[in-house]
């Protein structure tokens, strides 16, 4: 059972009437239709839905990786849908962490360097020390000098998790973090993700179609054909 932090009542992420359309050669495709939601500080939220339902697009818009056709996204007090790309990048550097399905580690860098990279980009102090601490925390203290190719899938995702938490983000976005892993490893990774999230007090927004993983989050948003159905809390689920 998750204890709710009093601060959590203030939304970290507020989305209003988010609509996203893409132009095709002959047609315009509406991927998201009038999505509105609020996610509070320290909360863990899963966005679930079938393939092609629009959940990845929503994640991208929430994280400021893309801009919506209509509507606003307010992240940590800033309306990111109104920021320039560079301003959004700056915001991401300091406030946002990511975990991806395909790990997205830079193959040329070692595990340690991959974790150091966001710290250096955000000009933080003592990046190496912080990176070592985190890698040790995820159980890879012995594999600092290994490159991604020398690591298994599960190990790569641990490095990615360490990287995601490196810059003390206010909010962490995870896209199918266990999607490329076997059940057992996936279980370990989701344990680690949840544990770190709790330790660091980070807001977690996760896209997944793994219902077990989704069930570990405080709330779930179901998305279907670009529209959000009512959020469900874990309490409601358990009840």
């Amino acid at each position: 059972m998750q204890t709710i932090n009093p601060d959590s009542q203030r939304p970290t992420l507020r989305v209003e009437n988010l609509t996203h359309r893409v132009s095709l050669e002959t047609d315009t495709l509406t991927i998201l239709k009038g999505v509105s939601l609020e996610i509070n500080r320290g909360e863990s939220v899963a966005i679930v839905g079938r393939s092609g339902s629009g959940k990845t697009t929503l994640l991208g818009l929430l994280a400021g990786l893309d801009t919506p056709t209509e509507g606003t996204v307010e992240l940590d007090g800033s309306v990111i849908s109104g920021l320039s790309e560079d301003e959004r990048a700056r915001l991401r550097a300091h406030r946002v962490g990511f975990v991806f399905q395909s790990f997205q580690l830079l193959p040329a860098l070692t595990a340690l360097e991959n974790v150091m990279l966001p710290l250096e980009l955000a000009s933080m102090d003592a990046p190496e020390m912080r990176a070592r601490e985190l890698l040790e925390r995820v159980g890879l203290g012995e594999r600092l000098a290994h490159t991604p190719r020398q690591l298994s899938g599960g190990e790569q995702q641990r490095v990615a998790i360490a990287r995601a938490f490196a810059s003390n983000p206010a909010i962490l976005f995870a896209d199918e973090p266990t999607g490329n892993l076997d059940n057992r490893t996936g279980q370990d990774i989701s344990d680690l993700l949840m544990a770190l999230n709790q330790e660091q007090g980070t807001t977690l927004v996760m896209v997944t179609h793994d219902e077990q993983l989704a069930a570990r989050c405080a709330r779930q948003f179901h998305i279907e054909a670009g529209e959000l159905t009512e959020p469900v809390t874990r309490r409601e689920l358990t009840d």
Partner: peptide, 16 residues
């Protein structure tokens, strides 16, 4: 392209 997308995600601006 993948590296650039990742660096952008990690907060590096286009000038960078």
């Amino acid at each position: 392209r993948d590296t650039v997308a990742l660096l952008k995600t990690l907060g590096l601006g286009s000038a960078g």
